[in-house]
Each structure stands twice: as C-alpha cells, then as structure tokens.
C-alpha cells in the first residue's frame, strides 16, 4: 500500500499540521512516511500545501506531482491540483468558498462541509481534524488508535488536554463526508 496525498488550502487553516498528524499517525502504525511542505514566502491568508506519503515500503521520492488523493480547502488549490489527481483517485473538498466545483469524471469526488460544521459546533480550532476524519472515512490508511498516538506525539504536552476534542472532530468528519461523484 502506498498512498500519495496532497493537502492544500489557505495558510492558517491547519493544512501543514493536518499533514503532520497524519504522518505521525502513520509512523506510529509502523508505516513509512514523508511530509513535504511547500515552503516559500508564504503568509497567513496565502496558499499552503503539503504532500504526505504513507506506505508499507521504503518511499522513493517525497516530491511527487500526481496524487492518489487531493484534499482541497479553497478554490485556488482546486484549480491548481484537480488535474494532478491520478485517474481513479480521490478528490475531497470543503465546498465553503468553492464557486467552481470539481468537474472531472474519471475520479471519485467527495465533499465535507467542515468549515460550516466547525462554526456551528464552535469548534473552529479543530476544523482540520474534521477534514482529516472525512479523509479517513474514504481512505482508512491509518486506524483511529494510531491517530490518537499520532496526536500525542505531534502535539506539545501542554496541548494534550485538547486530544479528546480532536478525536471527536475526526468522528464528526467521518459522519459528515458525502459522495459527489463515484466511479
């Protein structure tokens, strides 16, 4: 199993930390992992993206241009990465602020209204974990037990009290995800 993922959105949405939690969780489950951020003169409100690979084998290139899954959190990222999903792959997006929804017919498309749900529940801080939950429902590449271990390892100890809320957000995401176009 090798899963090559791009997570892309605005800076400040927790794109990089979502990738980090996913990578840590994979590592805890004894998988090979890599986390490659787009780094640059980026700032809050600008775009941010990270490629995460989780694999049972040694990872060749951490730098990839085609993805099994694209997790898309704004229009710019959708425009940029829609065509980079491998045929038969997955595109998961949050419809908040998306005015041109994905159009491809050769991939599986899902949506998760995480921004809206996080606002309704007053859980804006764990928005990214709702998205992560939605992804894990579609592609269970790591099990829940290891998501908790990944959170323990990636969050500083002073934030460990937040872990139950994060796990609850993962559950929320799992039940919230909807299929838009399935092959």
């Amino acid at each position: 199993m090798t899963e090559e993922i791009i997570i892309a959105g605005f800076g400040g949405q927790g794109v990089l930390s979502m990738g980090k939690i996913l990578a840590y969780s994979g590592a805890m489950q004894d998988k090979e992992v890599s986390w490659m951020p787009s780094y640059g003169p980026e700032m809050r409100g600008g775009t941010a993206n990270v490629s995460v690979i989780i694999s049972d084998e040694r990872i060749s290139s951490p730098i990839i241009s085609q993805f099994d899954t694209a997790i898309i959190l704004n229009q710019q990222s959708l425009d940029k990465f829609q065509d980079s999903v491998k045929p038969g792959g997955v595109l998961l997006y949050d419809p908040n602020g998306i005015f041109n929804p994905p159009t491809r017919k050769d991939i599986n498309i899902y949506k998760v209204s995480a921004t809206e749900k996080a606002a309704d529940l007053g859980m804006a801080k764990v928005f990214n974990m709702i998205v992560l939950g939605a992804f894990l429902k579609v592609k269970p590449v790591v099990t829940e037990e290891f998501i908790e271990k990944g959170l323990m390892k990636s969050l500083p100890e002073r934030h460990h009290a937040m872990i139950p809320e994060n796990l609850k957000a993962v559950q929320t995401g799992k039940s919230l995800v909807e299929a838009v176009h399935i092959l």
């Binding site: 590592a27 992992v33 490659m36 990872i59």
Partner: peptide
Amino acid sequence: DGAIGQVMEK
C-alpha cells in the same frame, strides 16, 4: 538541498 532540508521523515 532545500528538499531534503524541509522534508519530514522517520
């Protein structure tokens, strides 16, 4: 190089 410097791995 910048890629090996920035990538996170085990």
